[in-house]
Write a protein that binds this DNA or RNA. Structure first.
Length: 959
RNA sequence: GCUCAAGUGGCGGAAUUGGUAGACGCGCUGGAUUCAAAAUCCAGUUCUUUCGGGAGUGUGGGUUCGAUUCCCACCUUGAGUACCA
């Protein structure tokens, strides 16, 4: 019997499906283990060989854990709301649900071919109403919550209302908008319903706010910061503008500190944690308020300053600084050109220059401002601020290196301690005060806050960074001009999209006030629309729906015609962003069919959270941050028992494509082979990589038939071959370098594909795909098959020889057990494949046919190549799946030897090898080595002064 | 600029606590088998050499009997991030 991978793989995939082999039970005595992949967006292009890489790794781990006796949850689903299906709908009029359904069917077919051990009974699709019902439910929970800084968790909004009624908001330590006014209980109780609602919105964890957003006219939608790359949209590369809009926002900033702290307890890579830390961007420092001099003192300030004649205006400038210790080094201040005070404080003399500068800055896009870091620009406003301690005047400038969106939009400039301030001061000839004892700042600023002593700073003299900061803050506090403050870069996340293919909000508007639909009436399903474009008036696509009003009496969606301002109200037209559904899906898998709850308490308590999460690192600051935020929130509200979603996370690297390039002589239809291209004037054209063989030789006839432009192509060959050039780049349709896993499965089998993807290189590293190399792995499987088929004409034949009689083979087996187990636990799947190859070669050479060796070996291989393992397992006479077999135990006693070949080196250089018994003492080894006849010949006549013996490893003679 | 990761044959990559560098696979070379091809099997394959050796893990130093591994400086590449006060 030869190894017929197609028949074997079909047979076992069918068997697993029919027997529900991988169905996980929610009630089990076994310990749980939850292995999850980042679920895919089902795009129309289908899977290429890069996509399954992470799925194969997680599948190996899931199968390994099953062998170890765990109850493993390993589900899969689809993140099926998203832009491509909607774009397709806009172009063709096809409902996105239909496209999505087709794409999912294609994905499923491709995934099934690879033999994953997914529990498909738990499949989720974010675009299905029975799923997004609970996305809407969580949204309502967020709306009904506020963040209490005292208990440091989210609480019900009812608690807050009760507090307002009793004592107003002055004593409440809650996260809210910065401009929230103070009010007493009496004032609260006197507010109208609308006023109350408006105030509550400033506290709710999801809220409506007029925000400046990134508006992409071409996509007709708002984008998050992380959806913009270099000032253009990530998808499509369209320009993005700033625009004010009323949007739903998520108060993720309330969780900034907990999102930061939570990183300590989870097993993620340091680089990933680092990017989340950077994104949260915590900085500790002080908020300082500077008084501004009245313009009366303007002339006085210009060189003839007299403190007695100076007057302070009512205006103040607040800044945030991480370096309160350097406050005596402040020699000017800089405001963002957009800062609200600029117009007010600018003197008449400086007005033309300032206005011209503001105009010039506004013209430059964010992108230009970002790209142009080198140019120093700014204008003096003519106004002066008062130093809080020296009371001296400080000139106030504006400059576009200060961003309106961060901190207060103003900085206190300390040129001696900050390079940007330094460059600015040098450029405009502003004085620089040195406040660092013994440090030269004549060439550049000294930004290091360690190992400094403050000088030239009155009461801070002689202190270091830490002490000086503390004293400065304390002194500012007593003056009422500042306080210690922690700033976060993390902004609240905009949660509205002007799109059709997303979750509708369970929200209607009564008199402009957003109201939640009662949870019992969920889901609110997407309405039918004629077209998927935004309306002519700029409303989102849901503005085209005829039946999109909420009847509060009958609790149902009704026709827009019936809106009456009393009982029937318009529904929200925006939909939720892509990350809504993916922020909590891991919990839905635990109890996917539950109609009464997000998931049952029993299921949530049993499965807890994801033990191992595998996916690409493009989600480092998006999905992974939002999912952590929602998990923490749902924990606060007692929905979940855990506050981190993913305990361990592995980022798999991308598999890159190898593009094939032909060289066309300019202006002709003649193509030159790669090594002759220097002799001609040529242009590069990418051709289908499937037309090229392992030696980069082009199938010339195939190319002629591939595209009409090549029908009459002529070729200049080398050695009668056409050799193509290569380029390693992202696998993509446009480069014609896509390799389809279906083709690989048909030709070599899923087991070969799985092994080869692992064999390509370390899981976390990016690596190019090269179909040529696959034959090595494939022939390993054929050799492995032959270990079991040694009878006449390859019939299945194994013996019962006990393992104790098989010295060498037993050693081979236990070496393999040890290595493979270590590899799986370290996610070094690539080296395991090598180990299997070596093991198979050794056993073949040993002519090993014993069941006692081959059976445990099968179990080792089964996570990697499950189909062949399952087939051979059944040949051994077992009626159950190999998945339930116990992982073999490593027994070191099989590896113990009585002698070992010691490398003998002299002065660190290897000289010769010597077989010595293992149980010799150091002295005995030394005596044996010195007695060895070879020793003297090898030492060039010198006598060793010292002998170093590393037990079991090496004997080193030192001259 | 900052942060992180990484530099090893023609190629992908091994060597995870310092101890025979280049496992395993691809490719290449030779051989066996075959009418022939495919497939399969065997041998060789870091470079260099006067066949004794010699050199060798990005570069230059250091620690050590011994360094791909540890330390310092530098170069290069990749990823992320950025006028963040």
């Amino acid at each position: 019997m030869h190894y017929d991978h197609n028949a074997i793989e079909q047979k076992w995939q069918k068997y697993w499906a029919e027997n529900q082999t991988f169905k996980a039970e929610n009630n089990s005595e076994k310990e749980k283990y939850y292995v999850l992949d980042m679920f895919p967006y089902p795009s129309g292009a289908g899977l290429h060989v890069g996509h399954p890489l992470g799925y194969i790794a997680s599948d190996i781990y899931a199968r390994y854990k099953r062998h170890q006796g765990y109850n493993v949850l390993h589900p899969q689903g689809y993140d099926s709301f998203g832009l491509p299906a909607e774009q397709y709908a806009i172009q063709t009029g096809q409902h996105p649900a239909i496209t999505t359904k087709e794409n999912i069917a294609r994905y499923r077919e491709q995934l099934d071919k690879i033999g994953f051990s997914f529990d498909w009974s738990r499949e989720v699709q974010t675009s299905k109403p029975d799923y997004y019902k609970w996305t809407q439910w969580i949204f309502i929970e967020l709306f009904d919550s506020w963040y209490d800084n005292t208990s440091n968790k989210a609480q019900s909004i009812a608690v807050l209302i009760a507090l307002f009624e009793k004592e107003g908001n002055t004593k409440i330590n809650a996260v809210c908008d910065e401009d929230t006014p103070s009010f007493s209980a009496e004032e609260w109780n006197a507010f109208t319903e609308k006023e109350k609602e408006q105030l509550l919105l400033q506290y709710r964890l999801t809220y409506l706010a007029e925000t400046e957003v990134n508006w992409c006219p071409k996509l007709g939608t708002v984008l998050a910061n992380d959806e913009i790359v270099n000032g253009v949209s990530e998808r499509g590369g369209h320009p993005v503008l700033r625009k004010k809009m009323t949007q739903w926002s998520m108060r993720i900033s309330a969780y900034a500190e907990r999102l930061l702290q939570g990183l300590e307890g989870i097993d993620w890579t340091e680089s990933l944690k680092e990017s989340q830390r950077n994104w949260i961007g915590k900085s500790v420092g002080a908020h300082v308020t500077f008084n501004v001099f009245d313009s009366v003192s303007e002339t006085a300030a210009q060189g003839r300053y007299d403190q007695n004649s100076a007057h302070l205006s009512d205006d103040t400038i607040s800044v945030f600084t991480t370096r309160p210790d350097t406050i005596f080094g402040v020699t000017f201040m800089t405001l963002a050109p957009e800062h609200a005070l600029v117009k007010k404080i600018t003197t008449s003399e400086q007005k033309p220059a300032v206005e011209a500068y503001i105009k010039a800055t506004a013209k430059r896009s964010e992108r230009e401002r970002m790209a142009d870091v080198k140019t120093i620009s700014g204008v003096f406003t003519g106004a002066y601020a008062e130093h809080p301690f020296t009371k001296q005047p400080i000139p106030i400038w504006i400059g576009d290196y200060v961003l309106a969106g961060y901190g207060t939009g103003a900085v206190m400039a300390v040129p001696c301690g900050d390079q940007r301030d330094y460059d600015f001061a040098k450029h405009f000839h502003i004085p620089i005060t040195n406040i660092f004892d013994g440090i030269d700042i004549s060439e550049e600023a000294y930004g290091d806050k360690n190992n400094i002593t403050i000088t030239n700073s009155d009461f801070l003299n002689g202190l270091n960074y830490k002490k000086a900061s503390y004293v400065a803050i304390k002194t500012l506090e007593t003056q009422g001009q500042g306080y210690g403050k922690t700033n976060y870069r993390l902004r609240d996340a905009v949660f509205s999209r002007q799109r059709y293919w997303g979750e509708p909000f369970p929200v209607y508007y009564n008199n402009g006030i957003p109201k939640m639909i009662d949870k019992v009436h969920l889901p609110i399903t997407l309405p039918q629309v004629e077209k998927y474009l935004p309306t002519e008036t700029g409303e989102p696509p849901l503005g085209r729906a005829d039946n999109w009003a909420w009847d509060t009496e009958n609790a149902m969606v009704v026709s827009n015609d019936k809106i009456n301002d009393k009982t029937i109200f318009p529904l929200e037209l925006n939909t939720m962003p892509g990350w809504a559904g993916s922020s909590w899906y891991l919990f839905r898998y635990m109890d996917a069919d539950n109609e009464l709850e997000l998931a049952s308490k029993e299921a949530l308590d049993y499965w807890q959270n994801v033990d191992l999460y595998i996916g690409g690192n493009e989600h480092a600051t998006g999905h992974l941050l939002y999912a952590r935020f929602w998990t923490k929130f749902l924990k606060d509200r007692n929905v979940l028992p855990v506050d981190e979603p993913f305990k361990k996370l592995i980022n798999q690297g991308m598999i890159l494509g190898t593009s094939a390039i032909v060289y066309r002589m300019s202006g002709t239809n003649t193509y030159v082979s790669k090594n002759l291209k220097e002799e001609y004037d040529v242009e590069e054209i990418r051709v289908d990589v499937n037309l090229v063989n392992a030696s980069n030789e082009l199938d010339v006839e195939g190319l002629k038939n591939w595209q009409p432009q090549f029908n009459n192509a002529e070729f200049i060959l080398e050695d009668s071959k056409y050799i193509v050039g290569n380029e390693v780049e992202k696998m993509s349709k446009r480069w014609y370098n896509v390799v389809n896993p279906d083709d690989i499965c048909n030709q070599y089998g899923a087991d070969t594909l799985r092994l080869y993807e692992m064999f390509l290189g370390p899981l976390e590293q990016a690596k190019p795909w090269n179909t040529a190399g696959i034959t090595g792995v494939h022939s390993f499987l054929k050799k492995f098959w032959r270990l079991f088929h040694t009878g006449k004409e390859g019939a299945f034949l194994i013996t019962d020889t006990p393992i104790t009689q098989l010295g060498e083979s037993a050693k081979t087996l236990h070496k393999t057990i040890k290595k493979v187990q270590e590899d799986i636990e370290n996610f070094s799947f690539n080296t395991s494949v090598s180990t299997f190859m070596i093991c198979t070669n050794e056993l073949t050479a040993q002519k090993c046919t014993s069941k006692e060796i081959l059976e445990p070996l099968l179990i080792l291989l089964s996570p990697y190549a499950p189909h062949i393992a399952e087939e051979l397992w059944s040949c051994l006479g077992y009626s159950t799946s190999i998945s339930t077999a116990e992982f073999p135990e490593f027994d070191a006693s099989f590896l113990i030897e009585s002698t070992k070949e010691y490398p003998i080196s002299f002065n660190g250089k290897m000289r010769f090898k010597m077989e010595l018994p293992l149980d010799l003492s150091k002295d005995e080894i030394e005596a044996a080595v010195m007695a060895h006849e070879k020793t003297q010949q090898q030492l060039d006549g010198r006598t060793p002064k010292k002998i170093i013996i590393v037990p079991g490893k090496i004997v080193n003679l030192v001259g």
